[in-house]
Design a protein around this nucleic acid. Structure first.
Lengths: 241, 241
DNA sequence: CGTACCGTTGACATACTTCAAGGAGCGTGG
DNA sequence: CCACGCTCCTTGAAGTATGTCAACGGTACG
């Protein structure tokens, strides 16, 4: 059986048996595609489905009344989209595809049925959700306590780490479709300042972000500079056997 | 049967049957107390137990190498302490009692056993964890996109909302044991600026924080000013029957 | 009665924002 | 094929929110 992104993700937390794998497989309903820029889920909308991202990048964000927005996280292949929305019946955030994306749909009711049949799946999903929360926490630290340059460095390193896990990046760098405006909304900076900070990091010989590609010019010094500790990303084998 | 904080919390998400209630009751091991200021869980420590806060206030935080810290969230009675630490076997943050606290201990192994026996419990805990994540997300928005005064206002309102849910606050205000230094670490500000902002809010007739008590002087104007939307806190009855 | 912690305030420094302008790439329609 | 209108990137100058440093007062507690 081919390993879907979801199987790979959950398998990292819980060793899955054959029956569990087949329940998982039955979760995948339709494959769908969405075009870049058009919201997939809107804040306040009540929806029935969550998604697993198969290809492309998306971001989840919240908007304030005055039009500013804060991007909470970016999603890369293998990540959940809108899991929390679905658990709460109503979404507390919006999700926008950054590029054209492909997803597989998962219905809430199927998910809850699967939990009832195979409790270990519920545990696995709880784990996956906890890792997502750990990432949000790290973003909070980032935005609350690091200056713009450290923040940017940390962010680029984290993204790199996540992409390595799904085979889309290395210590040299990775393809990155984000604009400086998106970076600004994620890091709580202005787009202008993002530009300046990127230049600063480039001129310091740490990292270069140009033409849709992030190149780590000096990975170790960058890690040191950003005080980056990847332990919250590591999932060293199944925790539950 | 007396309603423990945990039962009340999870009962808000999932309608619990008698067998489920008794499994829950069996989770509570010992009642313990901790004194203010001495860490209960330390970053990097691997531990075996999570806790439910029965009385007092605590905070979870991360420290950077340079000594700065970011408080991720405060916990008030009824909240989990260290749930994520326990799921990951190793804690990615520290937890410090703000006041002397009373907790009940929950062992991981018991929790996982309970999940296996009663899948709905796992779902309930997943829900509770998701609400916690929603709160962290709201903090991220707060720190990333609101100025100091709005941030403070939003924070005091959220805390008020949470305390109302557990019967410790009202629209008039609430007892609050936090120092200005703690507020600073939570909001990503300096203690000096926290002081200035509190004065500003007080002189504007919005809210007064003095002598361990938060008084809402004009709840509606404050809500408007902070763009506070409490929907992410509301848990309007069990979602799963 | 000192000492430690917390709150308060002023003067000064600075990181980041805002405003403004222009340039490069690119798709679209004349 | 060129002109145009986008979007995104880049850079300068000026403004502002917030941080840092420093000092002092109150209160609790040993």
């Amino acid at each position: 059986m081919e390993k879907t992104p979801l199987v790979r993700k959950l398998g990292a937390f819980v060793a899955l048996s054959d029956p569990e794998l087949s329940v998982l497989a039955s979760l995948h309903r339709r494959r769908r595609t969405f075009v870049a820029g058009r919201d997939l889920v809107q804040q306040g909308q009540s929806d029935q489905a969550a998604y697993i991202l198969a290809s492309g990048w998306a971001c989840s964000y919240k908007v304030l009344e005055d039009g500013q927005r804060q991007i909470v996280d970016f999603q890369v292949p293998g990540d959940f989209l809108g899991l929390r929305s679905v658990l709460f019946n109503v979404s507390d955030h919006s999700i926008e595809p950054v590029t054209d994306i492909e997803v597989t749909e998962v219905h809430v009711s199927d998910l809850l049925d699967a939990f009832a049949q195979t409790p270990r799946l519920a545990t696995a999903v709880l784990w996956a959700a906890s890792r997502d929360e750990a990432m949000v926490v790290e973003h909070l630290v980032n935005v609350g306590r690091r200056d713009a340059a450290e923040r940017m460095a940390h962010f680029l390193l984290e993204l790199g780490g996540r992409l390595v896990l799904v085979g889309l990046g290395s210590r040299d760098g990775y393809a990155c479709p984000l604009t400086q405006y998106l970076l600004a909304d994620a890091l709580g900076l202005s787009a202008v300042h993002v530009n300046r900070v990127l230049r600063q990091l480039r001129e310091a010989g740490l990292v270069t972000f140009r033409d849709g590609f992030v190149s780590f010019d000096d990975y170790d010094r960058l890690t040191e500079f950003a005080q980056f500790d990847s332990s919250y990303l590591d999932q060293s084998g199944p925790l539950l056997r």
